[in-house]
């Protein structure tokens, strides 16, 4: 037995994931939101909400913004060079994404991090989180795809007359950015509150900016009472999921070792039932997974869940790790009675 020997693998498996993630997210948040001030520029194909409206502060730019911009061109233009350029952009996005898979959501995304901070505040104030019923949970899954299709389609319909329909007004050129809470919340962290406005210049702008304000309000209230409230509807998550299969970071499950105790499901901020109940599928990176790895940390079965990078296990569930994380490794004698 390697019981009392130090090994890196054991130390990693025993880690306090909550603390590790907390600090990792702070560093990632700083790089994405303030990185620009130290000259960081990770380009404009990032698979995470690095907001273009964050001016000089941003350490890179969100691909969804770029994507909407790219699609607002006459379709003829895509035949030839511009088409290649578009595919190269999409490819760059995929390459960034493959490195971390959905880990971008659980560890990097500044909007995700903000929601986790609100969750912490709720937990500290001892208010119970709310949950969707299983039926509703299933229903809302499609919303993110609808948003994705809209954000892809609307810019195309500005520059082109699709199916003979009239072209859309220019106010819809960045339809998702208009309603994304990141546009308001992220610049606020660099002291820029100028995105909190309602634009009366045209009807479209009025509607979209008002929607944006409402959604930001919902974002703040929603994620206080529901863990990762916004992520359930995130079109970035939908776009990412299209590319998720070949990604390098994976969440694997060995169903034979699973007792279906449901600890992973309880820990899951996205209420993904399959993580506990599915004992057949190996790749557990489902559409709403944020790869936050909380399920692995909560799993008491040796090697049942693991984070795997290019075929190598980097973090896996162990009994010892579980007991340490739950602080059940010591005996405190009580003399209360």
């Amino acid at each position: 037995m390697t019981k009392n020997k130090f090994s890196l693998r054991r130390a990693v498996n025993n880690m306090n994931l909550v603390r590790f993630r907390f600090w990792f997210q702070i560093v990632a948040f700083a790089l994405i939101v303030y990185g620009g001030y130290i000259g960081l520029d990770l380009g404009n194909k990032l698979p995470t909400f690095a907001c273009v409206f964050n001016g000089e502060g941003t350490g890179g730019k969100c691909y969804v913004g770029e994507l909407q911009h790219d699609l607002k061109h006459p379709l003829e233009g895509f035949i030839g060079f511009a088409g290649y350029a578009f595919l190269i952009s999409l490819g760059m996005f995929a390459v960034w994404f493959w490195a971390l898979n959905k880990g971008w959501c659980g560890f990097v995304c500044p909007l995700g991090t903000m929601q986790d901070w609100l969750t912490m505040a709720r937990e500290k104030s001892r208010i119970r989180f709310s949950e969707y019923s299983w039926a509703n949970r299933k229903k809302i899954k499609s919303i993110k795809y609808i948003l994705l299709i809209l954000l892809l389609l609307l810019p195309v319909m500005i520059a082109n007359s699709v199916f003979g329909l009239p072209k859309l007004p220019n106010g819809l050129s960045m339809p998702f950015c208009d309603i994304c809470p990141g546009r308001m919340m992220i610049p606020a962290f660099t002291g820029h509150f100028n995105q909190f406005y309602i634009d009366f210049s045209s009807k479209t702008d009025l509607v979209m900016t008002t929607l944006g304000m409402i959604i930001t309000g919902l974002f703040l209230v929603g994620s206080f009472i529901k863990k990762r409230f916004f992520c359930y509807f995130c079109p970035m998550a939908a776009l990412q999921y299209v590319f998720s299969k070949p990604a390098l970071l994976k969440l694997y499950k060995d169903g034979d070792k699973c007792t279906r105790c449901g600890d992973c499901y309880r820990a899951c901020d996205m209420d993904i039932l399959e993580i506990a109940d599915d004992v057949k599928t190996k790749n557990m990176v489902t559409e709403d997974c944020t790869l936050c790895l909380k399920c692995i940390a909560a799993c008491p079965e040796e090697g049942c869940l693991e984070a795997n990078f290019m075929g190598a296990t980097i973090f896996e569930s162990t009994k010892e790790g579980f007991v340490l994380r739950m602080a059940m490794d010591q005996h405190k004698e009580s003399h209360a009675h």
Binding site: E123, R128, T259, C261, R266, M326
Partner: peptide
């Protein structure tokens, strides 16, 4: 003995729920 209570938020509401789930979900 096999399954231990796993708590995500150490507040009363979540502890009671974790306890309940442990005695139901893992039971064979």
């Amino acid at each position: 003995f096999n399954d231990m209570v796993a708590v995500d938020e150490w507040n009363l509401y979540d502890m009671i729920d974790s306890i309940s789930d442990k005695y139901l979900k893992a039971c064979t």
